[in-house]
Design a protein around this nucleic acid. Structure first.
Lengths: 211, 211
DNA sequence: ATTTAATTAGACGATCGGTCTATTATTCGC
DNA sequence: GCGAATAATAGACCGATCGTCTAATTAAAT
């Protein structure tokens, strides 16, 4: 929490070019995603986002029409970020398919470790909160999971064709299974402040593939 | 949401015996657990518990010293309720061990269906919220999972000894794997308002056991 | 009868959530 | 160039919520 940003932000319309940091909005989104990985959406007040970035309320409602709209953008932003991260591993043609998945797991694990297991998955966090969230989020979140599922399924399909997993496997179902369990593992890792739930689930998943 | 309870609660010290409903405190806990299965802890205000039961604030702070203390009691209450439910299935000696687990799954599934997939698991919900929760909850929640794990592991151990699953299985690890994934499945079921995540995970788990 | 215990009633102040209006600085249109 | 539109910050504002505290009410204890 970088508290006081003593930089007294200039008011008024900013100069067109060379404005140095055209970043207020982006900074809000970044801080928003960060906070959402740690805390719930309902539990986090707008002031908290603002204090984090050192921006007054007026700016917030200049950029976003409401907290709900802000949330939508956070979901999109995180989903994109994560999809890119996923592809970085799953589309790596220099690596056999199953190893790609293992690499992703290792990367995610390292990420959680880096943040002391205090940050989880934005999509999972929001999903858990659905009872207190705008209902419009539901479909949005579900779509994100479907997207990740598709990406993973493609990789698993490669593995199947390659003969690394049973030829009668259903890649789609396997991918779905993975994400269901993985979200559980992330949640548990956050609770125990430890990577073992991630390891344990991943290991179980790969073992299951072997049958 | 049973809004107005038109029963104008009698004030003053209640009669000693035959008081009919010595239930205010219990009702608060019950409502609390209900709300916690649907919404987050931080997202739910005390007034919401109170309105649900039709009790004024004075009563709440008569029975509980703070919201945090209330929460602790909710965790205990739910953990107990769930452990009893678990035992009802897992200790059923008239049924083979693996079938007991399947029965539990079916029961939990039916429970979620009954509430339109809008209620999840209190412990899981709170776990996800850890970032915004009193840190004292962490250990408490982790202990609950360990307890459930132990109960399930005993059942799996029976299955192992009986030869229903591979003799070199580690019951403890399997049980841990189950709860990790199960929480993920519950979360996902709540998001999709559908039982398929539960079914899919359970099926995958049992298939994995077969190896 | 008087005191004490148990409970409900609800006012209160502080804080905070989300919205909205005002102000300031810049660019754009003509 | 000058006025209008634009982009951004500043912060007042209202209602809700949290936790506390005092008063009121009823029964039990002595």
């Amino acid at each position: 929490m970088e508290l006081d940003t003593p930089k007294p932000r200039r008011r008024g319309r900013p100069p067109k070019q060379a404005d140095g940091q055209r970043n207020t909005r982006a900074a809000l989104v970044r801080a928003g995603v960060e906070l959402l990985t740690e805390k719930g959406f309902a539990a986090t007040g707008i002031d908290e986002f603002l204090r984090r970035v050192g921006v007054p309320k007026g700016s917030f409602y200049h950029y976003f029409s409401s907290k709900e709209a802000f949330g939508t953008e956070l979901i999109e932003n995180y989903a994109n970020y994560f999809a890119r991260k996923l592809d970085r591993w799953l589309l790596d043609e220099s690596t056999p398919p199953l190893q790609r998945i293992a690499n992703f797991v290792a990367d995610a694990r390292a990420g959680m470790e880096r943040h002391g297991y205090r940050r989880g998955c934005v999509i999972g966090n929001l999903g858990q909160e659905m009872g207190a969230l705008p209902d419009a989020y539901r479909e949005h979140l579900a779509d994100v999971f479907t997207d990740w599922e598709t990406r993973l399924a493609r990789c698993l399909e490669l593995a199947r064709q390659e003969g690394s997993i049973a030829p009668d496997s259903d890649s789609r179902t396997l991918a779905r299974f993975f994400w269901i369990g993985w979200e559980g593992a992330v949640l548990r890792a956050k609770l125990e402040l430890s990577p073992t739930p991630l390891d344990l689930f991943a290991q179980g998943f790969f073992l299951g593939l072997g049958r």
